[in-house]
Nucleic acid binder design. Structure first.
Lengths: 237, 237
DNA sequence: CGAACGTTTGAGATGACTCAAGCGTTGTGG
DNA sequence: CCACAACGCTTGAGTCATCTCAAACGTTCG
């Protein structure tokens, strides 16, 4: 079941029939290499991607080429569903690791909007989940110091991966470099490196660029002022 | 016409009949005092607000009470439409200045979703416009220096107000304090004050806490690395 | 084996913050 | 209608978090 992770463990979830509808809307499944740009800003879009496996990201570059990630997408995310109502995006979309995606043509979504209002509303919900994460990211870069930002991001990522069965709460695979982490947190990679060393030395968290080990989840959440409410998880606070 | 500013001058716009539908969905019009919290995080919502006049904001506070604004809403914005699919919000909503809002019960929106798929998609679009602005704000706090952030915000605000007829491109009313500006840009109010002085001394822009005068729009846009594409304005770049 | 890339560490620079104080403006109640 | 309180603006001085520049090391892969 390709779409099993989509909206899994969220306060709004899909009925089996709705899941089947989305499954049926998939036109093809693609395998993408790591570090490829998939959608460029301004490009007219006629399809969107559901991430099945791997990590992707959305980002905005500044004039000197410095990059700010505005979202990281994990399996189960509808990566560029924003492109459906918007018709073109205001940012680039790229793979971080190798990835598998299901392609859903916008014509299939047109039909869902016209015929299945309840499902339409759930698709809408999923894009607003992205918006809620954008807001949490804004809080992170606007009001937390370097260690807080990294801690907050790691807490968020753990919670998101746990929701789709990819973390046990203490340990999860995460194919990000320290440079990626810097572009997520609005820091330099050099400073990220120093923050990670501190988190390691304090026995709070070990980040190894392919695996993250959380030794003291409470301390990490406290340091990042993290609460998962904005992820709209079932059973969440 | 209360809703005349909603989606005005955007790439997606409302048909007269659609505008009438929304107009008809308004249950009441409220006048709100300045600096009041209107919706609190986590509150269950059964209505949303269309801002007719004044300024509102959405924000997240950290543990020590430091505030990060995640959005500023201008007349014509559907302030908390996110609360419709989400049912509760992850942040607070408050007035900045005195404001007039049209109240739209969610039951009326339910009907629109069920019966008017094209209009539903436009409402969806308007929430994704908010998401696009969140992303621009992320870029701003993550990758611009203090003066760049202030310049970027002023450019964005000018463009948004111009779209609804509240700026002539050089001068517009803006009832924000330097403290508000700091909470928007992820800075301290003291530093915002210094940045504003520099912008004034360079003859780029004068911010007077009730009126903004842009003396050199090109320089301001350059300094803030601003492009309005993410606002999805008609005739925009 | 070498190239490319990511990680690690050090030293020094700097942009933004904190603390502190004074000033201006507005609104309100005596 | 004045006085005072509350609030926002302004400026200075000193501190500190993060950045920049530089160099070395480790790992992966062709």
């Amino acid at each position: 079941m390709l779409t099993e992770k989509f909206l899994r463990d969220r306060t709004v979830s899909l009925e089996p029939a709705e899941r089947a509808t989305i499954e049926g809307a998939i036109s093809e499944v693609l395998t993408l290499g790591a570090r490829h740009i998939i959608v460029r800003e301004g490009e007219r879009l006629d399809r969107s991607l559901l991430l099945i496996d791997g990590l992707m990201c959305r980002y905005i570059d500044n004039r000197q080429g410095h990059r700010q990630l505005v979202a990281m997408q994990v399996p189960g995310d509808f990566v560029d569903l924003h492109g459906f109502p918007l018709t073109k995006l205001d940012h680039d979309v790229a793979t971080l690791t190798g990835a598998t995606v299901a392609v859903i043509p916008h014509v299939a979504l047109d039909r869902i909007v016209a015929e299945q209002p309840q499902l339409c509303r759930k698709l809408w919900f999923s894009t607003l989940l992205d918006a809620a994460m954008h807001r949490a990211w804004l809080f992170r870069v606007g009001r937390l110091d370097a260690m807080g930002r990294v801690a907050h991001f790691l807490c968020e990522t753990e919670a998101r991966l746990r929701a789709v069965g990819l973390s046990n709460g203490h340990r999860f695979a995460l194919g990000l470099t320290q440079i990626d982490l810097a572009e997520i947190c609005g820091l330099t990679n050099i400073h990220v490196n120093r923050v990670l060393r501190q988190l390691r030395e304090k026995r709070i968290c070990i980040f190894r660029s392919s695996v993250v080990e959380i030794l003291d989840a409470d301390a990490l959440a406290r340091r990042g002022e993290f609460s998962s409410h904005y992820l709209y998880l079932t059973g969440g606070d």
